[in-house]
């Protein structure tokens, strides 16, 4: 981990060549970050490895505002390289807002995944599930670095 710095809204560190915002929580399997906005309200987005493994984003779509989500269910779909796949919700909650900017230009999620490229906001986020996420800078950077190393060894991402 090197070069911790603060951008407009997030605290970024570099881990194995990737930016990682450490002012939020992470769901390891889905490569989604979760940031508390107010009590019970969270913002969700893709982390840098989620963006990298997706490839150039062509299309994003979301479920409707007001939809109730269970953890592990899709809150939308992402298309890259003619490959459509689900955006998996890291926590249960109710969709209160979706980011129209990334629907209009998915490149925003690619170029600024921790900031303007956020995906959805949820209310009534399940506190128990939030507690299951990676939530300390040490745990986040250790997990992220280990995953990058694993992906590089397996040829999932370039050296």
């Amino acid at each position: 981990m090197t070069n911790a710095h603060t951008t407009g809204h997030e605290i970024l560190v570099e881990v194995s060549g990737y930016p990682v915002a450490v002012d939020r929580m992470y769901h390891a399997d889905s490569h989604m970050w979760v940031k508390r906005l107010t009590p019970g309200t969270v913002r969700v987005g893709l982390d840098a490895l989620g963006v990298e493994t997706s490839g150039t984003l062509a299309q994003l779509s979301f479920v409707a505002v007001g939809d109730e989500l269970a953890r592990g269910r899709a809150f939308g779909q992402l298309e890259a390289a003619k490959f459509v796949g689900p955006l998996v919700s890291p926590v249960s909650g109710t969709v209160s807002r979706t980011n129209d900017a990334v629907v209009t230009d998915p490149g925003v999620a690619e170029h600024d995944p921790y900031g303007e490229g956020w995906l959805v906001e949820l209310t009534s986020a399940d506190e128990t599930e939030l507690a299951d996420l990676l939530g300390t800078p040490e745990a986040i950077t250790e997990w992220f670095g280990r995953t990058v190393e694993d992906y590089r060894l397996r040829g999932v991402i370039a050296e």
């Binding site: 493994t53 490839g55 890259a80 390289a81 490959f83 796949g85 992906y151 040829g155 999932v156």
Partner: peptide
């Protein structure tokens, strides 16, 4: 399949 979509494809 690979987590990287291009590789999976």
């Amino acid at each position: 399949v690979s987590p990287a979509r291009t590789a999976a494809l």
